[in-house]
Structure formats: structure tokens, C-alpha cells
Nucleic acid binder design. Structure first.
Length: 606
RNA sequence: GGUCGCGUAGCUCAGCUGGAUAGAGCAUCUGCCUUCUAAGCAGACGGUCGAAGGUUCGAAUCCUUCCGCGAUCACCA
């Protein structure tokens, strides 16, 4: 005998597992056949009912008219299952009406659980989520924003689903790109610093990256007019050669170069820190390419002796992945230096050494690197690392402008700081127009505008499936109405307003007696609340914040409809009123919780 | 050219482990603020789900081919 009471506590699945057993029982009794499984779906809004049993798949086992079969099973369920209070059959769909008591019981469970939907215990095995990983020669732009929001949110979602998580990034602090900025600064900078210029450090360094490119292009042009072949000119422009020389000096540990490198990077880090803080993202641990770029060479040497890799005549080391449908891929240059792949192999292994509980990793990197990660994961698998089967490339589509790709060198980028400021400013303009915050201090207002502006931006980016590319048109501002972050924040603020008023009139809703009547909107809201835990799981399995965003939107739409149709504080029946207050409170909590997973804050007023 | 991804309303997107008449938002139009915040609610308009075949009782969803867009195929990262 099944303990139904225990099943009740397991969210939406509870009723379905009961029904599954009972439907099978019905079919066995009525048609003397055993059914391997039963297919359920939520009943469509246009029909009466809560849960629908799809009869069609049963026709393989039970011969007959689907409508009649549905009818017979419906009768049986109504008779034998307390929760089933009614049914109707339309074509091959058996729509079951589930009684109010089931939902009020569910709500009691939800209302009494702290951090509803969020895993209370974390796994022993951890997953490391890498995101951001910028170059240190220029400021962060919209592309980084998508990366940061995705990585941060996925990390939070994994935690909520019960995974221990380390957030990390690998900072690309060395290489030709930073040397270009350094060289240009030396040449044109007049010792300018963030202090003397009043510029944010990353912006200052970025300016010199652009300055380098300008000078470089000019030199190419001059060489071409002197009759030099364009390709040759691109390779031999003096300023580029000088940058390359600088990189060599850096690798050799040249004191002056290293000192300048440290100084300029520190400016950039200060700038980044400010941007991250503004964006509301953080990291548990940092890796720097200057520490890791030599890693991996030993692993390659070891793999060579074990036959995972092979050496070509010129001394370069490769892996043959043709049996996997891929190509040969280089893992060590002929001069023995590391390539990107070498470094990534080494860094992955280093991370597990540093954090022995890491059993998997998520790399938040654009889809232009799909091939690279496919190869990286295969190599780690061939090297025999147990965790190699738990590697995931969180690949996302590029953020393009109407004019095409963003290019830092050409200045066609949407700067992250500017964008966030503009969003906050727009939020402020709308709020001023509405004028609901007269008694807020200037500081409070600015904080709120930032929260709303960022909420709009984050939601706008996160609600889209990561795989899809985003076309961002700076001319058309991000919406603040409809399916947007502010819409959801607004609903939250309304709920808080109700709760404040409830408190004032001494109706916190605590200790309410059980109600038996449910308004259809209340029932829908409870159903929607019941979906939250499985939504988190689904979002974690799919590494998709978009699922959380869509869920929250549906919940909020449902609440607004309820709010419009049903009086909460004005309800005369005390139990009914208390229940509605509790329901509103819980919806607010779930909005807050879900938005936290997206890295979006919620306001008490707006 | 090979490989991978995407293609759904004028625009931005859901739906994709197959199920009922394909859903939202924006835009356009119509109602609703002396009642819990109108950044809201209710409604109208709007679709050959890129195209064609196939599998199935049933396809936006799965398979094949084609078209369009993007990415990638470096001793760059």
C-alpha cells in the first residue's frame, strides 16, 4: 500500500505519481492489461481541469475508442481517488479536476518551507564555473556582460540545485595584446595615470590599445605607399615588431617591461573591480594566465610517452582526433612553447589540484570556440582524467550590433559601464515621471534606479536562450514594460506594499486557519508555485537561466491577474484574507529567490 | 568545401524529451485609476512555425534533403 500522505509533500509530481498508479490500476481492472507508463500534461487553460491524462498512447495496449476509454478511466479515478473531484473527456484527452484540498495542502507545505525550492545541502563534489576571463588591454563591453551574467547566473542556479560551486575566471594578463597597450602608452602616454587623467584604469589602458592600432595602421599605410606588399607591411610594421620584442622581453623577465606590465595591469584590475561590483558579479578564486601559460607542457610530455600525442618531424606535438571525426590538433609548438590548448589542459588539471573536490567544470565562453572546447574535452578524456566526462562548454551566441560585430580596436563597442549607467538613467527618468518616490532620499533613489536599470538589462539578456545570438540595437532602448525585469520587480514591490499594509492593520496572515474555497486564480498561483523546484532543477540540467526568467514571468503574470481580480486586504472573511496575504508573501519570496538566481535585485517600492 | 549552431506574428522571444485551436511582450487599436502602486489588468488585430519530403493515430518539436544567416576548420587566443 502506498503512503499517499508522504507523496503529497513531493510537489506537483506527487499527484502525478498517485494518478499513475491509479490509472494503471484502472486499466488493469477495466481492460485486463498492464500499462508500462501513463502520459500526463497540465490541462490547457481553455478546458476545465488541472491534470490531463493522454489516452492515445494507451491505444497500443487497449483496443477501443479513446474517448470511451477516457470516460471509463475517468469514472474509475473519480470513484477511487479522493483528489479527483471531477473529469471530462475531449477527444483522447481525459481532463481531471483536482480538488481544492490538494492545493491548499500543497500551499501549506510551500508556505512552511524556508528557502522553498532551494537545495538546503550542497554536494560534496564541486563544480568550477569559469566566466568573464577578459583580456587586460581594454575595458569590458556588452559581449562580456552577456558572458558575466550567464556565468554568474548558472553558478547560482547550480548552487540552488544542490551543487557546490566555485566561481572562477582566468585573466588573460599577458601576451601581445597587453604589450601593444604598454608600447603605445610608453610612446604617447606622457606618463599619464588614472590619477592624473581621472580616467578609469581599464579605460585608460584601452585607449592606448586603440592608439596602438591607429599608429600600426598608419605605418602599414605608409609602407604600402612606399611600395611594400600589404601582407608584408602588416607583418613588418616597426611598431608591431617592437611590441613583439616587448613580449619577448616580458617572457625573459626584463625588469622594466615587467614593472610597466604590473603597473598597467593593476590599473585595469581596479577598473574591472568597479565594473564587476556595479554588475553584481563575483568570483571565489582567480587564475592569471601569466601563472598558467606555461602549465600543461609536462602533461603533454607525459601524454607523449603514453602515446596519447605524437611528434612530427619538426618537433611539434599533435593529437590525432580523426577517429572522433575531428582533425589533428597541435598541442605544443615546434620550438617547444605552449599554445592556447596546452595552457588550457594545464589549467584544468591545476584547478583540480588546487581544489581536489572539483569533479567537473563549466566554461562560459562564446560559441566561436565550440571547436576548441570539443577538442580540449576530448584530450582530457584521452589523458584519462575521471572528471573529463563532467566538463561543459556553456556556449553562447555573440552579441552583435546592427552594424555587425563589435570591435574594440575600431571603437565600435557598447561599453559595459556606459551601458549600465544609461540603463540606470533611463530607469530614473521613468521613475521621476511616475513620481511615486517623493519621500526617498537622493541616495535611495539612485540605488533604486541602478537596481531597476540593471534588472532591465540583465533580464533582457538572460531571458534569451544562451545559444541564440543577440542583436543589440543601442538606438532602441531596452524595454521597461511587458516581459521585462522591471515588470517583475514592480510586482514584487506591490506585494511588499500589501505586506506592509497588512502589518499595519495587524493582519500578517500568520496562524490562518485552513480555507476550503479557492478562487481559480489562487489555484493557478499555487500550481505555478509548485513548479518552482523542478524549474530550478531543469535550469541546472540545461545550464539555462532563461528557464528561470520565463518561469518568473509566468508566475508574475498570474499574480498580477489575481491582484486585479481578487481583493486581498479588502476581503471580509478573515481566513480568506489571511490566506491571500500568505499567498502573496510566498509569491514575493519566490520572485526574490528566482531573481537572485539571475543576479537581479528586487525593490520594496518603485 | 567539411563540421557545428540558428531560422516561429511587423519587431524581440517562449514552446522543441512528439499531443488538443502554436503562446507572450513590443508596436497598432478598444476598454479599466474617488477601491490593496496603471512600470498594471482585460480585450482586438496579427502565423504557409525557412522550404520540400519522410516516420507517426498525431510533427513547430524526430529523420532526410535543400535554402538563408552565423561561427569554425592557425605552430592566434
Amino acid at each position: 500500500m502506498i503512503n499517499f500522505a508522504a507523496l503529497y509533500t513531493q510537489s506537483q509530481m506527487g499527484i502525478e505519481s498517485i494518478l499513475e498508479i491509479k490509472v494503471k490500476e484502472a486499466v488493469a481492472e477495466l481492460f485486463s492489461t498492464e500499462l508500462p507508463q501513463v502520459e500526463f500534461q497540465p490541462t490547457r487553460k481553455d478546458f476545465e481541469g488541472d491534470v490531463t491524462v493522454v489516452v492515445f498512447p494507451m491505444l497500443r495496449y487497449v483496443k477501443g475508442n479513446p474517448a470511451q476509454i477516457g470516460e471509463q478511466i475517468g469514472e474509475y479515478l473519480k470513484e477511487k481517488v479522493d483528489e479527483v473531484s471531477g473529469f471530462n473527456v475531449i477527444k483522447g484527452f481525459l481532463n481531471l479536476v483536482i480538488g481544492n484540498q490538494f492545493y491548499t495542502n500543497q500551499f501549506d507545505e510551500i508556505a512552511s518551507s524556508e528557502n522553498y525550492g532551494i537545495a538546503s545541502k550542497l554536494s560534496n563534489e564541486a563544480v568550477m564555473v569559469e566566466y568573464s576571463s577578459p583580456n587586460t588591454n581594454k575595458p569590458l563591453h556588452l559581449g562580456h556582460v552577456r558572458n558575466n551574467l550567464l556565468g554568474y547566473s548558472v553558478a547560482e542556479i547550480l548552487k540552488a540545485a544542490g551543487k557546490k560551486v566555485y566561481k572562477t575566471q582566468i585573466i588573460n594578463d599577458r601576451g601581445i595584446h597587453i604589450c601593444k597597450s604598454m608600447l603605445a602608452w610608453k610612446r604617447f602616454g606622457n606618463q599619464e595615470t588614472p590619477e592624473t587623467s581621472g580616467l578609469k584604469g581599464d579605460k585608460l589602458v584601452g585607449n592606448y590599445y586603440v592608439a596602438f592600432d591607429k599608429a600600426y595602421k598608419k605605418q602599414i599605410e605608409d609602407l604600402v605607399t612606399q611600395g611594400v606588399d600589404k601582407k608584408m607591411a602588416e607583418k613588418e610594421a616597426p611598431i608591431l615588431l617592437e611590441a613583439q620584442e616587448m613580449l619577448q622581453k616580458w617572457e625573459a623577465g626584463d625588469e622594466e617591461v615587467v614593472s610597466l606590465w604590473k603597473t598597467m595591469n593593476s590599473w585595469v584590475y581596479e577598473g574591472f573591480a568597479e565594473t564587476y561590483k556595479n554588475m553584481g558579479v563575483d568570483f571565489d578564486t582567480l587564475y592569471y594566465e601569466s601563472d598558467t601559460y606555461l602549465l600543461g607542457k609536462d602533461v603533454v610530455a607525459d601524454g607523449l610517452t603514453r602515446g596519447v600525442f605524437f611528434k612530427k618531424e619538426d618537433g611539434s606535438v599533435w593529437i590525432d582526433l580523426t577517429d572522433e571525426g575531428l582533425d589533428e590538433k597541435i598541442v605544443l609548438r615546434s620550438d617547444g612553447t605552449a599554445v592556447y590548448m596546452t595552457q588550457d589542459i594545464g589549467t584544468a588539471i591545476q584547478r583540480v589540484k588546487d581544489y581536489p573536490d572539483v569533479g567537473g567544470m563549466v566554461y562560459t565562453v562564446g560559441n566561436e570556440q565550440d571547436y576548441h572546447f570539443k577538442v580540449l574535452f576530448l584530450i582530457l578524456k584521452k589523458l584519462g582524467y575521471s572528471w573529463s566526462s563532467n566538463l561543459f562548454h556553456l556556449s553562447y551566441g555573440m552579441v552583435d550590433l546592427p552594424s555587425g560585430k563589435m570591435k574594440s580596436r575600431e571603437g565600435t563597442v557598447v561599453d559595459a559601464d556606459d551601458l549600465m549607467n544609461e540603463m540606470a538613467q533611463t530607469a530614473g527618468e521613468i521613475a521621476e515621471e511616475l513620481g511615486k518616490l517623493e519621500d526617498y532620499s537622493e541616495e535611495q533613489k539612485l540605488g533604486l534606479y541602478h537596481m531597476i536599470g540593471l534588472g532591465a538589462l540583465k533580464y533582457y539578456i538572460l531571458k534569451v536562450d544562451p545559444k541564440k545570438r543577440i542583436l543589440f540595437n543601442p538606438e532602441e532602448s531596452v524595454d521597461f514594460q511587458g516581459n521585462t525585469g522591471p515588470f517583475i520587480q514592480y510586482t514584487y514591490a506591490r506585494i511588499q506594499s500589501i505586506l506592509r499594509k497588512a502589518e499595519e492593520i495587524g493582519a500578517s496572515g500568520e496562524g490562518a486557519a485552513k480555507i476550503t474555497d479557492l478562487h481559480p486564480k489562487e489555484k493557478e498561483l499555487i500550481k505555478q508555485l509548485m513548479l518552482y523546484p523542478e524549474t530550478i532543477q531543469l535550469a541546472a540540467e540545461n545550464y539555462s537561466p532563461a528557464l528561470i526568467a520565463n518561469y518568473t514571468y509566468d508566475l508574475v503574470k498570474e499574480f498580477n491577474s489575481f491582484y486585479q481580480q481578487v481583493s486581498i486586504l479588502g476581503e471580509s472573511d478573515e481566513n480568506q484574507r489571511f490566506f491571500r496575504i500568505q499567498l502573496s508573501r510566498k509569491v514575493g519570496e519566490v520572485i526574490e529567490s528566482a531573481f537572485k538566481l539571475l543576479g537581479i535585485g528586487v525593490p520594496d517600492r518603485m
